[in-house]
Amino acid sequence: MIRDITLGQYYPTESVLHRLDPRVKLWGTLLYVMSLFLFQSFAGYIVASVFLVSLIIMSHVPVKFMLRGLKAVFVILAVTAVLNVFMTPGRVLVSFWKIKITIEGLRTAAFMVIRLVFLITGSSIMTLTTTPSDLTDGLEKGLGWLKIFRVPVHEIAMMMSIALTFIPVLLEETDRIMKAQQARGADFESGNIIRRAKALVPILVPLFVSAFRRANDLAIAMESRCYRGGEGRTKLNPLKYAMRDYAAHGVLLAYLAAIIAVAVIF
């Protein structure tokens, strides 16, 4: 199940999108997500679809891999669809017992599902084509102006990057501790909710202990390698806009113009 979540995963391959500056991708994703909520019309969805499909093609990430990510959120999609189909008032299409299905309901449900699918696919394109470290670099530099408001941008980016490195380590550790407690006869599968929650204690305590130990080790390791916060730090690969990034900004502007045009005309 965890392996199925493609949102947040990186897919290593070679493409224009992979090479783009992470800041451009961040702004692009933001713009795209906002555009999805601006559209009310059919034409708007066509514009968004064309944009999304061309991004998918450009990313060189297999479509199958991307769609696997949707499997994980299938439940959310289904609930959204069902709620909208049955709860929207309007012209009745079919009715039986107390349940009515309306034309408006079907329409809203379809739009909501498409919107969610587009939202998830769109943002997963960003994470699929950007390494976690590029992403945090992009955040750090792209949001650097927030420092004026005393937002600790560097620290947040550093925390994100460490968290990303340690997620696989801690997942593996959880698996190991679970197996070790199972070997001592622990049972995580049977019983009611309270019993099951109690059964987690033998996993959570060692996991926390280990996480704190790792945090302590890492802090000492960072200090001994002269880490003293973001002040005066340089970068191995500082972010710099290339031609393609300016070009990408152009494309984003064109998309913005298209959205506005569609919103005004339809």
Partner: peptide
């Protein structure tokens, strides 16, 4: 299987990490 785990004890690497 549960009684099997009683009969076959498995001590993992760094078993002290499972103390809780």
């Amino acid at each position: 299987l549960r009684s099997l785990r009683g009969k076959v004890g498995l001590v993992f690497q760094y078993p002290e990490h499972q103390l809780f």
